[in-house]
Simulated scan of single mutants.
Amino acid sequence: MPAPKIDKARAIAAIAELFREQGYHGTSYAQIMKASGLGKGSFYNYFPAGKVDIAKAVLKQIDCWFEENIFAPLDTNDVPEKVFCKMFIAVNTYFDSGQRICLFGAFALYDAREPFSSEIKSYFQRWIEAITTYLQNQGLSEPESRHLAQCSMVAIQGGLVMAQATDDTNVFTQATSEAKNMMLKALK
């Protein structure tokens, strides 16, 4: 009887969580295969270049989620309260209110930065650009919009680090709430 077919998207999501827990270099092929349910044949069929292909697939899956849930809502003319409420609900959901690290951030800070530097840079730049463009479309100047977008990213990423470091998710939810309020205040 043939082995059941493993859903690639689910396998990638499982591997993403493994990278969050173990780090890129700290994750072994055996752990990847166990967590994903992939056998050796399926593994190399899906990821012919091995671990680099796996990590790129993980980052691509995360990027697609952010495109749909963060960047697309910012590419509207909806009222700021609705747009930023939606964005920060998605941020809090995705990062499990600060209990789940940002894999792009983790890769940027540790030993996986070099092979994925373009993906990491693109992720952060796209998020900052999406917020900047939305704020400009709402009437703020480019410098003020960019400053607010960068401050929001610092609040989100810093909030994640502090929530992890202090084991206090309230730090993250407070940081994201303040970032949202800062942008809404600037638009009034």
Rank of each mutant, 00 (worst) to 15 (best):
M1T: 05
P2F: 15
K5W: 10
K5E: 10
I6M: 03
K8H: 03
R10S: 12
A11L: 00
A14H: 03
I15S: 12
A16V: 00
A16P: 01
A16E: 04
E17R: 10
E17G: 14
L18F: 06
F19D: 15
F19A: 14
E21N: 09
H25A: 15
H25F: 14
G26N: 09
T27W: 08
S28I: 01
Y29D: 14
Y29I: 11
A30T: 01
I32S: 14
S36Q: 04
G39T: 02
K40E: 03
K40I: 00
F43D: 02
F43N: 02
N45E: 12
P48N: 11
P48A: 14
A49M: 08
A49S: 06
A49I: 01
K51H: 01
K51Y: 00
I54L: 14
A55D: 04
K56F: 07
V58Y: 05
K60G: 08
Q61T: 00
D63T: 08
W65G: 15
W65F: 15
E67M: 06
E68R: 05
N69Q: 08
I70P: 01
L74Q: 06
D75Y: 11
T76L: 10
T76S: 10
V83H: 09
F84A: 08
M87A: 12
I89F: 11
A90Y: 01
V91S: 05
Y94W: 07
F95D: 00
D96F: 12
D96S: 08
D96M: 10
G98N: 01
R100L: 13
R100A: 13
R100M: 12
I101E: 07
F104Q: 08
G105S: 03
G105I: 03
A106Q: 09
F107C: 10
A108Q: 07
L109S: 14
L109K: 12
A112F: 04
R113P: 07
P115T: 04
P115E: 15
F116P: 00
S117G: 09
S117L: 12
S117C: 10
S118W: 06
S118V: 07
E119M: 07
E119R: 05
K121R: 08
S122A: 15
Y123W: 07
Q125R: 11
R126E: 09
A130P: 00
I131E: 13
I131T: 13
T132I: 11
T133F: 10
T133D: 09
Q136N: 05
L140S: 04
S141I: 02
P143R: 15
P143T: 14
E144T: 05
H147N: 14
A149S: 07
Q150G: 15
C151F: 09
C151E: 10
S152D: 13
V154L: 15
A155L: 09
I156R: 08
G158K: 05
V161I: 07
M162K: 12
A163E: 03
A163V: 00
A165Q: 00
D167W: 06
T169E: 14
T176W: 02
N181Q: 11
N181Y: 13
N181S: 13
M182K: 04
K188C: 11
